[in-house]
Every structure is written in C-alpha cells, then in structure tokens.
Simulated scan of single mutants.
Amino acid sequence: MSIRETGGRVVAMPSRRLALERAPDEVLCRVFLDGEEAAFEVLVTRHRALVFSLVRRYTTRPEDAADLTQAAFLRALEASRRVFARFTPVGPAPFRAWLVRIALNLAKNHARHGQRWRPVLVEAANDEVAEAPGESAQDGLERAERAREVREAVLTLPRRQREVLTLRVDAGLAFKDIAETLGITENNAKVQFHHAVKRLKARVGEPEEMR
C-alpha cells in the first residue's frame, strides 16, 4: 500500500491508514486537501503530545492543558484548507511550525486572562506523570513533585523567556525557527533561552529535560 501522485493529485491507495501514518506532514496536508479526512486525524495523533507539552507550561492543571490542546487542533482544522493551500508543493510543509504558533497563542491568552499558579496536590500532579518501569511509589511521588516545581518556576519567568524556553524545550525548534515564530532575532532567542535556563537553575536546579 502506498500514497502516490496521479495527474498532479496525491491519491491514497488501499490500506491507506498505514500509508498515511508513514507519510510526512507535507503529503498529509496535500492528501487532506484532496478530500482524505483521515490525513488530518494522523496529523493530530502525530503532534498531540507536542502541543500538550507546549501548552502545559502555561497552565496550572493538566485538564486545562488538555482543553487547550483540543482547542488548538480545532482552530487548526477550521483554517486548514485555507492555510494548506498556501503551502508550497516543493519541500516540507511548515505544518508543525504553524501548529506551534496556534498553540502558543492560545496558551498565552490563557495565561494572560488571570490564570495564576495555584498549588497542585502531589497526587494530582502524579496523575499526569507516567510511572517508570520498576519505580517505587515514593520515587513516583518525588518525580511528580519535581515536575510540579519546574512548572511553577517556568510560570514565573518573564513572558519572552517562557516563550523561547517552551519553543526550544517542548517544541524542539531551532533558534532560527523560534526567532521567526516570535518575530525576534536569532541572537535574541539564544539570549532569552540562556537567561531562562539561568533563572530556572537558580530556582529549582537544572531541569532534567535541559541536561
């Protein structure tokens, strides 16, 4: 089973789901434009964890992050046909960067509208931290508490530092892409990241994901 182009159109062949799951984002965007609704479902599955981890930095509760994640994909779906049509047929589609911008804007709006850090019970924090193989209950609680402390510290960062940190650590973007997303210079993105990491180290030590 494969996805191939016929007469300039991308066509999903038999057993299309497996082929879609293996296809790069640019192919999925083009297939979706050709009427293959399942292509967008694959994009959601592929990038859901990324969006959740990004917006989680701006929320106090995992359920808020889940709501923002759903909102980001709904907004992307609403604009998809108009935006996908602008993607160049040559080279990778900037779907991931576009989706990150949507998620970041929603997260910033959420934080801006009076959403402040509130203490979270360790038990509640532990619900969203997957138990590691062979990990004791005590170790799991300590790891969850550590994750809560890091999230709290991130929420205290200046806005620009938090944005750069989130895009770098959670979205995995290069500094060049971060600069383009935020409308700043690449050097400024690097400086903001450096200051963000320095602040976090002073507050909670070096977060594991930045080692």
Rank of each mutant, 00 (worst) to 15 (best):
P158I: 15
S136Q: 10
V197W: 03
L182W: 03
A202H: 08
E152D: 04
S136H: 13
R162G: 10
A147I: 03
T185D: 01
P158V: 15
L173C: 04
G140L: 13
I184E: 02
R162L: 13
D177G: 05
R168C: 10
K190P: 00
E186L: 00
P158T: 12
L157N: 07
V150F: 01
P158R: 06
A147P: 09
T166I: 10
V204R: 01
E145Q: 14
A147Q: 10
L165P: 03
A137G: 08
L141F: 06
V169K: 04
D170W: 09
F193S: 04
A189H: 07
V150R: 10
R168S: 10
Q138S: 13
R146N: 02
L167P: 06
E186R: 15
F175L: 13
S136L: 08
N187Y: 04
G183Q: 01
N187G: 14
P158M: 11
A202E: 14
A202R: 11
V197H: 06
T185A: 03
V150C: 05
G172E: 00
A202I: 05
A202D: 15
R148S: 12
K198I: 00
E186H: 07
V197K: 10
G140R: 13
E149C: 13
V204T: 09
L182P: 02
R146W: 06
L200S: 10
R146M: 02
T156A: 14
K201D: 05
R162I: 13
G172N: 02
G205L: 08
D139A: 15
K190W: 02
S136I: 12
I184F: 07
A153V: 14
I178K: 01
S136V: 09
Q161T: 15
K201L: 11
I178W: 05
A144C: 02
L167V: 12
L173I: 09
E152Y: 09
T166M: 02
L157S: 11
V169C: 04
A153K: 08
L155H: 10
K198G: 01
H195N: 02
K176M: 02
E152A: 14
K176Y: 13
A174R: 14
L165A: 06
E180K: 12
V164A: 03
G205C: 11
F175G: 08
L167I: 13
T185Q: 00
T185V: 00
T185L: 00
V204E: 00
R159M: 08
K190D: 09
L157F: 10
L155R: 13
R159D: 04
S136A: 09
L200T: 07
V197P: 06
A179Q: 01
A189C: 05
G183D: 01
V164M: 06
A153P: 14
